[in-house]
Design a binder for these strands. Structure first.
Lengths: 227, 227
DNA sequence: GCAAAAGTGTTCGTACTACACCCATGG
DNA sequence: CCATGGGTGTAGTACGAACACTTTTGC
């Protein structure tokens, strides 16, 4: 008789201060040590996997995501939990973290953003899962315009550029980057300018998803490459 | 109480006659209509997901694969089976089908290769799974040298080319293709020639995985693009 | 000698790379 | 007037795209 539990976990990325962050929680019923973990939990009998992720995120962290895709299913750690074997379907989520109030909801003791480069030891195999999520994000950034899901609706070009360079850990020429991005025709200049920090005011841009879809159907491919 | 079963299914691709094939089985205890289905079955409590796939493939079809990767987890059809909900972790497998004797083993009534373009109605959501597998294969062909896992160890350049054009359904210039492929430096000319069918005899080539790995670590990227 | 498939080079255009100076604002 | 970050153009190069004839064999 099969005795395996099915869980979902979410790697939720946010971007701020020129750094990539992961959303972590401390579970109420953690037992032994209070380790940080990815938000997630068991799937209910009558809900889809995706619905389960969304429910857990709401219950535990109060975020709602801008982008969500299935990442990978981790099920090879046969003894991850000593009572029942658990396999975990991991999801990758992106949020505009500037626009979000996280809070520990009913099921979580605490919730916080951690810079992805400075993670503590996480529960179970969650470090592995985050790593896989980061790899996926890095790969997808180069061939799908998903970076915009980490930014506010209108954003500065310099932020977009910093997002790419910091997540991919590669340098890039500012002029070439701008030329290429604008060349796609999927960005729109707004009439607004940034409330300055210093220096010359910068135009705010926004991503045009509809235009991207249209172009895509014509055989257009988004692609940002670095040396 | 959670009541969900965990299964694995494999999309096994083979290549022959300039066509891509999928390996299908008819299950012994299919119940109602005898539909064709992907090889697969329930995961045992103490085996990894990958081991489960390999076991089922052996039990049902007697193939051993050259390439195996996790594809996607299908779990949103809450009523796929009316007694228990089942989620299925699908794997993508590639075999050198010229070198394989398939046979219905203990658990299968019948086993056969079907051209991927002429599939019957499959059990459950298996048509969807095959489709996803095909998409993944098409994508990976262009940025990883996995086409070789569908070919015999030594092969003709014309076969390699036909593999690409038929799976990706795009034309390509023979000279440019050859130039590019050889330019990578991951192929080796053997001293053998093809037993002719007609025309000028053709050299046999082989893939050098070790050389590919070496280059990869130096930052080399395999990439085959089409218009 | 002809049918069938294999093998091979060059030209052209495009797209990426590298690179440095001026601009607009706030303090 | 200076510090800060924003905005812009050009020249060189390398790579992909297009394209057609010769070679070797079997029959």
């Amino acid at each position: 008789m099969q005795n395996i539990r099915v869980a979902v976990d979410a790697v939720v990325f946010g971007y701020a201060n020129h750094k990539l962050y992961v959303l972590l929680i401390q579970q109420k019923f953690g037992g032994s040590q209070l380790q940080w973990a990815l938000p997630g939990g068991l799937v209910q009998n009558d809900e889809t996997l995706k619905a389960a992720v969304e429910r857990e995120l709401k219950e535990e962290t109060n975020v709602s995501v801008k982008y969500l895709e299935q990442l990978y299913t981790f099920g090879d750690d046969v003894h991850r939990d000593h009572r029942n074997r658990v396999i975990s379907v991991a999801y990758l989520a992106l949020v505009d973290s500037s626009n979000i109030e996280i809070q520990a909801n009913t099921d979580a003791l605490d919730v916080a953003w951690f810079p992805v480069d400075e993670l503590p030891d996480l529960a179970f195999d969650h470090n592995t899962i985050v790593h896989k999520g980061l790899q996926r994000l890095q790969a997808k950034l180069t061939y799908e315009p998903i970076g915009f899901d980490l930014l506010p609706q209108t954003f500065l070009f310099s932020d977009l550029e910093a997002l790419y360079t910091s997540i991919l850990k590669k340098e890039i020429d500012r002029r070439n980057f701008r030329k290429k991005m604008l060349g796609f025709g999927i960005l729109e200049e707004t009439e607004f300018y940034c409330q300055q920090k210093a220096g010359r005011p910068a135009k705010l841009f926004q991503f045009k998803p509809a235009e991207y879809q249209r172009l895509q159907q014509e055989g257009f491919y988004f692609e940002i490459k670095f040396v």
